[in-house]
């Protein structure tokens, strides 16, 4: 009995030894040299693997950073300037300061403002609807409310508001990786400059139809009336295809345009309440309600 036991132990140990030797030599032979800095840079990166930098993953981005001559056009939106500065210091290069950004949803066509005119019955996917027709409202530009953007978000920074049928972005969690921007088949979501206290003024509409037509199917559409354009002192508003667009780089957050808008398509978010005098001048409209609602959601 003993001899059997001994034989087993010896033979198994020998087998193990041989296997270990084979593994060792193979590992030696096929060793690939890797720049040790890649590992270090990868440690600095937030390892969210979100693809926001334009590369498949953090390791891939680290490789690119190590190889790159300059950091132009290279930016990690999740880590922001801080991480980029660290990586630059490690690699002896210079990081470019980039203004932090945040995603905004440019559609306010809630169930209330934009009546449903038909019933979509098919696979629940925004792109499928977009490729088929205008969607269950008559607006060919607006949100189709199936939440592909929410599914695309890796940071749980978005959710669908069941009452409005529109996606909501949680500013604190949004890292501006751009996944939702890419997911949206109608390009409704935009990355805008992040202002202090997350204050935002933007045209919450991308409808390019003529005003009269657009108003038929949505109460809060931008009609392209150019009132905001005329009132803006900083040339921040661009009129194009019956649509106003506020350039977040130029906007000084003066809020003059917000009260001008006849359809409340311009939203102001996270601002302190206006002084009473202005408020009486402003039309008591739903735009205010929406903005306060959004604040409470945030």
């Amino acid at each position: 009995m003993n001899s059997v036991l001994l034989f087993t132990i010896i033979s198994l140990s020998l087998l193990g030894l041989i296997a270990a030797l084979i593994l060792y030599f193979i590992a030696q032979k096929f060793k690939v040299y890797e720049d040790p800095r890649i590992d270090k840079v990868e440690d600095i990166l937030p390892s969210a693997n979100c693809g926001g930098c334009g590369f498949p993953g953090c390791r891939n981005f680290a490789e690119v950073l190590v190889k790159a001559d300059t950091f132009d056009d290279l930016f990690c939106p999740v880590g922001g300037n801080e991480v980029m500065a660290q990586a630059a210091a490690l690699l002896g290069k210079e990081a470019i300061e980039v203004d932090p950004k945040v995603a905004v949803v440019r559609c306010s066509g809630s169930f209330e403002h934009r009546p449903r005119t038909n019933f979509y019955d098919g696979a629940s996917n925004c792109t499928i609807v977009h490729n088929l027709y205008t969607g269950d409202t008559d607006c060919p530009f607006g949100c189709v409310s199936l939440g592909e953007c929410v599914d695309a978000c890796d940071f749980e920074a978005m959710y669908m508001d069941e009452k409005t049928g529109l996606p909501v972005i949680i500013d604190e969690k949004c890292v501006a990786c751009g996944a939702c921007v890419e997911a949206c088949p109608r390009d409704i979501i935009e990355l805008r400059k992040r202002n202090k206290k997350d204050r935002k003024i933007f045209v919450s509409c991308i409808n390019e139809d003529k005003g009269g037509i657009a108003k038929q199917y949505c109460a809060v559409t931008c009609t392209g009336c150019t009132k905001c354009f005329k009132v803006c002192e900083y040339d921040a508003i661009i009129m194009n295809n019956n649509l106003a667009f506020i350039d977040s780089e130029k906007c000084k957050l003066c809020r003059k345009c917000v009260t001008e808008c006849p359809t409340n398509a311009i939203h102001e978010i996270n601002f302190p309440p206006r002084r009473i005098k202005i408020e009486t001048e402003a039309k008591p409209g739903e735009g205010e309600q929406i903005s306060t609602k959004k604040v409470s959601n945030n």
Partner: peptide
Amino acid sequence: RPLLDYIRLGKFR
């Protein structure tokens, strides 16, 4: 199952 809906999406992508 909405097979063709997704195949169309796949073709599009």
